[in-house]
């Protein structure tokens, strides 16, 4: 490196960042404001929510809105359904995507190129074009309003296969050869040698899929018709849509539905960000 040492004028260097810091602070405020408003309002009594002029804070706080929303809609059930649907889908998809990604990346077999092109084409198909036939299929299979019906179509994702393939391609060559000489069969090679090497990629993909399914609205809305099978987004959307707006319970319900992923984000932030960053990678 032939870069000259920077002369020591610290002040102008810092001044340069004042503008960008201020802009960032304004953006932070814009992002955080709705969340603060939501949490504080969810702890207000109804008169303090509808008071005029509107106030950000209230004279006193209460948990009554949470009680109200839990008695108005089966929120625990929604939470359970969302968890079963989102985690079930994610676990299967990560496993199957890794298996397929591994084969496409590291094994030569007949039809590999054609089948992988098919995966790439599938990646470009928007969900809305498959929505109505998918509904008919699930209905005819008798799987409407079941977890099987919700999970089955999403047990693999073309993006996941694509992503895992890119990861497996990047692993050093000849990893498998040594294992083959040691007498491990192909299934053993995949589960004992390959999977442990791609834990981070699988986690990032898993978080990405979990986030998508946990938050999905139109898909569970379409494949479930009974209250007992609603997920958090579809149940909440029906709740705010059907009756006269109940301000307090709507806000408390939103807090409950956002909390699980936000807690997960707090602890596993880098996997959330890695998952999104991976969507932008070119092969």
């Amino acid at each position: 490196m032939m870069v000259q040492p920077m002369p020591r004028h610290v002040k102008p260097f810092k001044l340069k960042h004042v503008g960008s810091t201020l802009v960032l602070m304004a953006l932070l405020a814009l992002v955080l404001y709705p969340f603060l408003w939501m949490v504080i309002s969810s702890l207000k009594a109804e008169p303090d929510i509808v008071t005029y002029p509107p106030q950000f804070f209230a004279p006193g706080y209460t948990l009554v809105q949470y009680q109200r929303v839990f008695s108005a809609i089966p929120l625990w059930m929604y939470l359970r359904n969302t968890a079963i649907f989102a985690f079930g889908t994610t676990l299967f998809s990560v496993l199957f995507d890794s298996m397929a990604g591994y084969a496409f990346a590291r094994i030569r077999f007949k039809g590999r190129k054609a089948l992988f092109n098919l995966v790439l084409i599938t990646m470009m198909i928007p969900f809305q074009i498959t929505m109505i036939p998918l509904f008919i299929q699930i209905f005819k299979m008798g799987l409407l309003n079941t977890f099987a019906g919700l999970i089955l179509p999403r047990m693999t994702s073309a993006f996941g296969i694509f992503m895992m393939r890119s990861y497996f391609v990047s692993l050093p060559r000849d990893l498998e050869e040594a294992a083959r000489i040691d007498g491990l069969n192909e299934i053993g090679i995949f589960f004992r040698i390959m999977l442990p090497l791609c834990k981070a990629a699988m986690l990032a993909l898993g978080i990405f899929l979990l986030m998508g399914n946990w938050n999905d609205l139109i898909y569970p809305l379409m494949l479930t018709t009974t209250t007992e099978m609603r997920t958090l987004p579809s149940g909440l959307a029906m709740f705010v849509g059907e009756r006269v707006t109940q301000y307090g319970p709507s806000i408390a319900g939103s807090v409950i539905s956002l909390l699980p992923l936000l807690i997960l984000y707090f602890f596993a932030q880098r996997y959330f960000i890695a998952g999104i960053a991976m969507t932008g990678m070119k092969d």
């Binding site: 591994y102 995966v119 599938t122 929505m131 998918l134 192909e186 995949f190």
Partner: peptide, 21 residues
């Protein structure tokens, strides 16, 4: 073995994406 690895994904993509399209 490769076909075993891709089998679940290919069936699901075929039945739940390509057929619906």
């Amino acid at each position: 073995a490769a076909y075993l690895f891709i089998f679940p994904s290919m069936v699901i993509l075929l039945v739940f994406t390509l057929v619906p399209v």
